[in-house]
């Protein structure tokens, strides 16, 4: 993909929520900075290791939570920062090395073209049979046509920031279906962009770390999908897939 000049004209912030990610975070920051020289904000969700120092040394701005309040809460801190500092676009990426910086221009393109307010970097090739079953189940429950509902590789434009830090969005724990449905309810346009992802370099998914967590996540998310579906504006139901060119 040829990177357009407008990509460099926009003020873009990469938000990386991190919890005990000292092993991989430096590499992620270096890759982003080396390739595009974008501003990187690491939100340290009360890590017990050296995530904060390692991130600062790698050249990222760091905000630290005084208590651990989850990945979505950390991402919201990033949105507050983005809003206050006047960024045009915020991209969320995981700190475990799954998300590849070379796809940042792809997920930002629909926002630059004003085709979407939120884009989701989608890679359905990843994950176990269980995860794929969960996606299908949530698609049926929510009525959404998005393939990768749990991807944390997303780009948001300026318009979405005020909604993303609103009281209503504070009730969520994950950046997944609940946030997509919430964005649609706010009248925002959502697009899915196919990307490639790498296997996780460090640690394991917090959601899929134990059977109990999986069950709890399934119940919570199904409930959100079902209840929010009942109360949402049907006009915003369909989300299109934007193939990268």
């Amino acid at each position: 993909m040829i990177i357009r000049k407008s990509f460099f004209d926009k003020k873009i912030l990469i938000i990386v929520p991190a919890y005990n990610e000292e092993a991989t975070i430096s590499n992620i920051i270096s890759l982003i900075k080396g390739r595009y020289n974008l501003d990187v904000l690491v939100v340290d969700d009360c890590s017990q290791d050296n995530t904060r120092d390692v991130s600062q040394k790698a050249g990222a701005a760091v905000l630290s939570h005084c208590i651990n309040c989850g990945a979505w809460c950390a991402i919201q801190t990033g949105f507050r920062y983005a809003l206050n500092k006047g960024y045009d676009i915020a991209v969320t990426m995981d700190a475990d090395g799954q998300h590849l910086p070379e796809y940042i221009p792809f997920i930002i393109k629909p926002l630059e073209d004003n085709d979407a307010d939120l884009t989701i970097g989608s890679y359905t090739g990843r994950g176990s049979a269980g995860r794929k079953f969960a996606w299908s189940f949530f698609r049926i429950m929510s009525g959404l046509s998005i393939m990768d509902l749990t991807s944390g590789f997303r780009a948001y434009n300026k318009k979405t920031f005020k909604y993303l830090i609103a009281d209503e969005s504070l009730i969520y724990d994950y950046q997944d279906i609940g946030i997509i449905l919430f964005m649609l309810r706010c009248g925002m346009r959502v697009k899915e962009v196919p990307v490639l992802m790498e296997p996780r370099q460090n640690g394991c998914s917090r959601i899929f770390s134990s059977w109990w967590n999986v069950l709890s996540y399934m119940i919570d998310t199904s409930f959100i999908a079902l209840t929010k579906r009942l109360f949402r504006d049907r006009r915003h139901l369909m989300c299109s897939v934007n193939n990268f060119k």
Partner: peptide
Amino acid sequence: TQRMAYLEG
């Protein structure tokens, strides 16, 4: 927590 992190920053 979010506001405090931002202000500390």
